[in-house]
């Protein structure tokens, strides 16, 4: 049973929410584009500073409780997005083709971009675990079952998992803001792209997009939620039957070409 109850954590979160909502949304026009700062980002960043081990404000136990609460708290957000879907089913059906196809982008995107670069950087089997998916908990379980958690593949997957947990939400928020400012994509396309299959990352990206395109805020939440739901539903199956075999196949084809030949460049994940 994971421990969830801690007055200390809940009171800090209450204080963070009050402060963050008081500051409110701030738009900064940097000339090249608008950078949107918004309450959930303040809560994330101030929270991260509070948790820094150097400050000794939170114990390991406190942080574990915060992580356990995080693990179930995004269900409330998902429920809220679900309530937007019921009344909008016709609208979702109408966008059905894009909504279905973009999932191919979610699942292929990690491999097409990640694997060649991992190989060019000299990674070996770590590259397979690192790039076959976005390496959230369900994906880690798949890798652990097939190769073992302590295998090169397992270490690669765990590395991306840790980076994603620490910096995923903030990095994707910046990226989503940059993409929104280019004007290359329709807000709804970006919203669907935001449905990467991780609750906190999707929430942060949806927030950034909703502020940059306030007139489409509700549709952005609707489509991000729908895409995220599809990613989650089919995710496990796609990873086992498609992503992992494809990544392994491409590894065999690409490694001899892109991989570094010298033995002494054996990588550490």
């Amino acid at each position: 049973m994971k421990k969830l109850l801690s007055w200390k954590i809940q009171l800090i979160v209450l204080a963070l929410v009050v402060v963050a909502e008081f500051i409110g949304i701030k738009n900064f026009d940097l000339g090249i584009g608008v950078v949107a700062l918004f309450p959930m980002l303040y809560a994330l960043i101030i929270g991260a500073v509070i948790s820094l081990p150097k400050l000794k404000l939170l114990s390991e136990k406190d942080m574990n409780i915060a992580a356990n609460i995080l693990g179930i708290s995004f269900m409330l957000f998902v429920a809220k997005l679900g309530t937007l879907m019921g009344p909008s089913l016709p609208q979702l059906m109408d966008a059905g083709l894009s909504l279905t196809l973009q999932e191919v982008g979610h699942f292929f995107g990690t491999i097409v971009f990640g694997l060649p670069i991992a190989l060019l950087l000299g990674m070996k089997r770590e590259a397979v675990g690192a790039t076959f998916s976005i390496d959230r908990e369900p994906n880690l379980a798949i890798i652990a079952e097939k190769y073992g958690a302590d295998s090169p593949e397992g270490r690669g997957a765990l590395g991306v998992y840790v980076c994603g947990t620490l910096f995923g939400a903030i990095y994707l928020t910046i990226l989503a803001s940059i993409m929104a400012n280019t004007g290359w994509f329709h807000p709804i396309s970006l919203a669907m792209g935001a449905g990467v299959g991780s609750g906190s990352m999707m929430a942060a990206m949806t927030g950034a997009l909703a502020i940059i395109f306030p007139e489409s805020a509700n549709d952005i939440a609707l489509f991000a939620g729908a895409a995220n739901l599809i990613t989650t539903i089919v995710g496990t199956y796609v990873c086992i039957f498609f992503s992992l075999p494809v990544t392994n196949y491409l590894y065999r084809k690409l490694e001899p070409v892109l991989g570094r030949r010298s033995r002494n460049s054996e990588t550490k994940a």
Partner: peptide, 20 residues
């Protein structure tokens, strides 16, 4: 939905030190 996401990201922030 933004108001609902703020506490969620606060928990995410508070667990930051754990994986550092």
């Amino acid at each position: 939905f933004m108001a609902l996401a703020t506490p969620i990201l606060a928990y995410a922030g508070l667990s930051f030190g754990k994986d550092l």
